[in-house]
């Protein structure tokens, strides 16, 4: 199968990426090559096979209920694009 421009635009939007009109054709063409390669696995019969989400079959370890992180907000916010009163600033979330 291959993706149309509209479909690529929808996916890009979900991923918060913009596809420039002048590069759109090349982006779609290369994307479809990759999807074409991926397509080969779809035909395999996998009925009854348990999906494998992790490289090893182990279970979650739990940590004790104790504070382990010190307050590092100054160091963390030192690399932020815009900070005021210890808050990260972004364009208005709600109009």
């Amino acid at each position: 199968m291959s993706l149309s421009k509209d479909e690529v635009d929808r996916i890009a939007r979900l991923a918060r990426l913009a596809v420039r009109p002048d590069e759109s054709a090349a982006v779609i063409e290369r994307l479809n090559r990759v999807l074409g390669m991926i397509e080969t696995m779809r035909a395999v019969d996998t009925r009854g096979v348990e999906p494998m989400a992790h490289a090893l079959d182990v279970v979650q370890r739990l940590r004790p209920d104790a504070v382990t992180e010190a307050d590092q907000h100054a160091a963390l916010q030192a690399v932020a694009p815009a900070v005021e009163r210890d808050l990260y600033l972004v364009p208005k979330v709600i109009e």
Partner: peptide, 15 residues
């Protein structure tokens, strides 16, 4: 939390 009080037209994010 998003704090919507005015930060020069921006929102402040408390993580």
């Amino acid at each position: 939390k998003s704090l919507h009080e005015d930060f020069h037209g921006m929102s402040g994010i408390d993580l």
